[in-house]
């Protein structure tokens, strides 16, 4: 899979939110998308998922995103919205089964294969025991895992997740980042936006920084997440902590 973005511009309600963004995703890696509030992270991820109108070009394996039939696109790219609501009290298995929609026709009868894939996805996310439980009854962390299982059931090459760790406790945050790592190890590309700089620096392979709709930096963590860069973009001082061979960036104070 190769997703190429060139000279991307996007507007939301008449305001320019992304300017001249060029990026490329072509190998299994965990990419952290960071930047202050309003930097255009969500818009970029929505554009990459085919949910946002834009000018410029986004190509998936050489074909323009807009040329893809929605179902065909959904088999390659999965989008995990920030909103973690399921509007009706569906059983968790039904929620995960929705991930099979791009593979099903009209009436959406689930095949044996669909059931197997759903079961495997739920196993991966350790939520198989909730199959028959109502989504409503789960805790926030459990719900987040079920929704990721939905994305896995979609069997995409690339997962685009909008602030998936928001509102989760540290244990769930870390377990989610670990899951992303496992997905990458299994050959998938994962792009996730996040606000937690230490988690981003510790778990990601690559960091993309957006600010006011401009692409500020794109590269390996230690090249991109320098104290100067973070101070410039976020207006905070940071401290670099080395632990088990990785460098953690920890915000300490507001910059002068």
């Amino acid at each position: 899979m190769r997703l190429t973005v060139s000279r991307l511009h996007a507007q939301r309600s008449g305001k320019s939110v992304l300017r001249d963004i060029s990026l490329s995703f072509d190998k299994p890696e965990l990419i952290g998308l960071i930047g202050p509030n309003g930097a255009g992270k969500s818009t970029l991820m929505r554009a990459l998922s085919g949910l946002q109108s834009y000018s410029g070009s986004i190509q998936l394996d050489g074909t323009d995103l807009a040329q893809y039939a929605p179902q065909a696109l959904a088999r390659q790219l999965a989008f995990l919205p920030q909103e973690r609501t399921v509007h009706w009290a569906l059983d968790c298995e039904e929620v995960v089964m929705l991930g099979r929609m791009p593979y099903q026709s009209g009436f959406g009868r689930a095949s044996v294969g669909d059931h197997r894939i759903v079961e495997r996805a739920m196993q991966t996310m350790d939520v198989l025991e909730f199959s028959r439980r109502s989504f409503e009854q789960l805790s926030g962390g459990e719900q987040a895992r079920v929704l990721i299982a939905r994305v896995l059931a979609q069997e995409p090459d690339m997962i685009i997740a909008d602030e998936p760790i928001n509102g989760l406790d540290p244990a769930h945050q870390i377990s989610l980042m670990k899951t992303f790592r496992e997905l990458v190890a299994a050959g998938r590309t994962v792009l996730t936006s996040l606000h937690d700089l230490s988690l981003a620096s510790h778990w990601c392979d690559r960091i993309i920084i957006l600010e006011h709709g401009d692409l500020i930096a794109d590269g390996a963590v230690d090249q991109v997440m320098t104290p100067q860069q973070i101070r410039k973009v976020y207006g905070v001082e940071t401290m670099a902590v080395s632990t088990s061979g990785r460098t953690l960036i920890v915000p300490t104070d507001l910059a002068e």
Binding site: L90, M101, G108, L147
Partner: peptide, 21 residues
Amino acid sequence: TARALDALSLGHDAAQSLGVN
């Protein structure tokens, strides 16, 4: 509309990203 309504349980964006028109 049946199948699309199922997908809409996950909200607008998720439904659309599942290939629903």
